[in-house]
Amino acid sequence: MARMKFLCDAERCIECNGCVTACKNEHEVPWGVNRRRVVTINDGEPGERSMSVACMHCSDAPCAAVCPVDCFYTTEDGVVLHDKDICIGCGYCFYACPFGAPQFPTAGAYGSRGAMDKCTFCGGGPEPDGSAEEFKKYGRNRLSEGRLPLCAEMCSTKALLAGDGDKVSDIFRERVTYRGIGTLAWGWGVAYGKGGVRQSSGLGGKASSTKE
């Protein structure tokens, strides 16, 4: 099976927020909830970089580890999903998450914190694929339709890549080879462990050699 991963190329992201808008529109996410956000570092200065952030669907997901009701599960595609019927909206996943992915709508008639909402890798939830109930709770299930996350599909500079981890890293490796300078596929080490792609392809967070 594929191991689904996100990759955001900080050399390419132009902070157009297209991914954020695409996500919000596709899933009809409630007010106050942003499953994806673009963060810019050193805005307007040399070294400015932008990165699109959402749930990275970690291999050893901290959110799932700390959840007091154990509502997370990982699909066979490696996508980290959760069951909103079990979630109690405690917010612990938000404290543990390295990426700040879990979001909490001010839902319910009391305006209290509702069940957690986060990026599903366009993979829906535990309800039957493509059902109205699933759409209402988790948004569109594009994976079951054989399609990849819309944020990456819509990315105008193809900075955001989504899909099988091997293919994504192949594309990125090729890109780095042509570009000649190594830069980071940021967040990969945090989300998918220190070994693997980061080590084998030399794409990770470590600096590329200064002698080049």
Partner: peptide, 27 residues
């Protein structure tokens, strides 16, 4: 760093929250 994001909310400007892992360890 100087961080800016269009998304309003708590800690939206934090890219990687390194403390989360230590909190997970503690709990």
């Amino acid at each position: 760093p100087e961080v800016r994001t269009q998304v309003r909310g708590v800690d939206t400007g934090v890219l990687i929250n390194a403390r989360g892992e230590s909190w997970r360890q503690f709990r």
